[in-house]
Amino acid sequence: MNRSPAAPLPRVSGGAARSAHGPNLGDRAWSGLLGLLGGAVLLIVGVVVLALVHVARPALKAGAGTFVSSSDWDPVSGSFGALPFIYGTVVTSVVAILVAVPISVGLALFLQEMGPRKLRPVVSFGIETLAAIPSVIYGLWGLFVLVPALRDHLEPFLGRTLGFLPVFRGAPIGLGYLAAGLILAVMILPTIASVTTEVLKTVPASLKEGALALGATRWEAIRMAILPYSRAGILGATLLGLGRALGETMAVTMVIGNSPTISPSLFAAGYSLPAVIANEFAEATGDVHTGALAGLALVLFGVSLILNSAARLLVRMVASGPSRAVAS
């Protein structure tokens, strides 16, 4: 992040004198231990990937070329195509991010900048509570409240008003990508909102004052000074939320419809990577089926890795170098 010139660090003379004799034994042991812990994290990741590859091998051998590209998933006839699950995972996560990020940033601004001071702790407590609800309860709520509401109200309404877009076309059945995406939005909202609040706390007060002293309103100061300064952090918060959305299993499988198909309409039933793994693993018939599910896990891992890396790259690009400000 860009900071105004930092004050020079004071030199601690005592430390310099001691380091002349080399790092002491305690320090060396401690840093060795930390290095071990750091290495262990990488090791665990490696072991997980290796195990998945091992289990997935029969399926990858059977249909190596078509596993990721085929959209046909039929364990009984032995065809395993992962595309519907990849599609479902990506679509629901994108819906979740599109819905959750604006709301979360709004909530964070309310908590940190605009909200009445007395209301802030109440809202903050509400957000924390959302984070503490187990996902199966979100699933139940989705099934009993969200899905009927989508089926009877929101989806018919969207079809009437925005039906010219393919994503809002089709029969309003409730269960489907939209329901899963919205549930995910609620679930990742606390993560994004609380991280964004922390990010906003790091904005120097002097920047906000600079904007206000120019005659900016509070909202203008937010747009002019606070949000531009925080964009890298907000992207990071989004990335954390995305990570959670990609891997969420229980709530999604309860409302997505669990149908291994690909449909352009958000109203249609679909499936997601974690959902199908959880649903079929216990009843998997034979090595190839099990292997295909392990393959899906590898794909999920890969999708997360790609999205994470892309987001990280984006954070770095945004964090370095100012761009031209958006003119009002």
């Binding site: 600079g210 002293a213 005659g215 203008e220 000074a225 100012p322 400000a325």
Partner: peptide, 23 residues
């Protein structure tokens, strides 16, 4: 202010014109 507080995300020119663009 006491400490220089230019908007770090803006260019030199944009800093100068920031208040005008607000208006």
């Amino acid at each position: 202010f006491q400490r220089p507080n230019p908007f770090p995300t803006m260019t030199i020119a944009d800093n100068v014109s920031a208040g005008l663009r607000l208006n």
